[in-house]
Amino acid sequence: SGWQYDTQCSLAGVGIEMGDWQEVWDENTGCYYYWNTQTNEVTWELPQYLATQVQGLQHYQP
């Protein structure tokens, strides 16, 4: 899939279920990364769990 979410945008106002994931701001890069509080996994790309929800939002315009 060529769909890419801009990680400089916060998910805070989007209104999706974050589940075990937390969004963390990284000052050095000026982007958010994502931290799974259960598994301690850290990812710079939007986790599939969140990406599926964001893509499903009608009002979200990339």
Results as ranks from 00 to 15, higher is better:
S1T: 13
S1F: 04
S1W: 11
G2K: 15
G2Y: 15
G2R: 10
W3P: 09
W3K: 15
W3I: 08
W3E: 05
W3T: 15
W3C: 10
W3V: 13
Q4R: 14
Q4C: 11
Q4N: 15
Q4D: 15
Q4H: 14
Y5S: 06
D6A: 05
D6K: 13
D6Q: 01
T7P: 06
T7W: 03
Q8N: 12
Q8C: 08
Q8T: 15
C9V: 15
C9S: 13
C9G: 11
C9T: 15
C9E: 14
C9I: 09
C9Q: 13
S10V: 01
L11H: 03
A12Y: 12
A12M: 02
A12N: 05
A12C: 08
G13A: 07
G13N: 04
G13V: 04
G13K: 10
V14P: 01
G15N: 08
G15M: 06
I16M: 14
I16Y: 05
I16S: 03
E17N: 05
E17I: 05
E17R: 10
E17K: 13
M18P: 07
M18Y: 03
G19N: 02
G19M: 03
G19L: 03
G19C: 00
D20F: 15
D20Q: 06
D20S: 06
W21C: 01
W21D: 01
W21V: 00
W21L: 00
W21P: 01
Q22M: 08
Q22I: 07
Q22D: 05
Q22W: 02
Q22G: 07
E23P: 01
E23I: 01
E23H: 04
E23V: 00
V24C: 09
V24W: 04
W25A: 08
D26K: 05
D26C: 07
D26Y: 06
E27P: 05
E27L: 04
E27F: 06
E27K: 14
E27Y: 06
N28Q: 05
T29E: 15
T29P: 09
T29R: 14
T29H: 12
T29Q: 10
T29Y: 13
T29F: 11
G30T: 13
G30N: 09
G30Y: 03
G30L: 04
G30D: 13
C31G: 10
C31D: 04
C31A: 13
Y32R: 01
Y33Q: 04
Y33M: 06
Y33P: 02
Y33L: 03
Y33V: 04
Y34N: 01
W35H: 15
W35F: 14
W35S: 13
N36E: 06
N36Y: 00
N36L: 00
N36F: 01
T37D: 09
T37G: 09
T37V: 11
T37C: 14
Q38L: 09
Q38E: 11
Q38D: 15
T39S: 13
T39K: 10
T39Q: 07
T39G: 05
N40S: 11
N40K: 08
E41K: 11
E41F: 03
E41L: 10
E41M: 05
E41T: 06
E41Y: 07
V42D: 05
V42Q: 15
V42R: 14
V42C: 07
T43H: 05
T43M: 06
T43E: 11
T43A: 10
W44Y: 14
W44L: 07
W44G: 09
W44A: 07
E45G: 06
E45F: 04
L46R: 04
P47M: 01
Q48V: 10
Y49K: 08
Y49T: 12
Y49W: 07
Y49V: 10
Y49G: 09
L50D: 00
L50F: 01
A51T: 06
T52R: 13
T52E: 12
T52D: 15
T52H: 14
Q53Y: 00
Q53M: 02
Q53W: 02
Q53S: 01
V54Q: 01
V54P: 01
V54M: 13
Q55M: 10
Q55G: 07
G56L: 08
G56I: 04
G56W: 09
L57A: 07
L57M: 09
Q58I: 03
Q58C: 06
Q58N: 14
Q58P: 08
H59C: 10
H59W: 06
H59I: 13
Y60C: 13
Y60H: 14
Y60Q: 14
Y60R: 14
Q61S: 11
P62H: 14
P62E: 04
P62Q: 07
P62D: 05
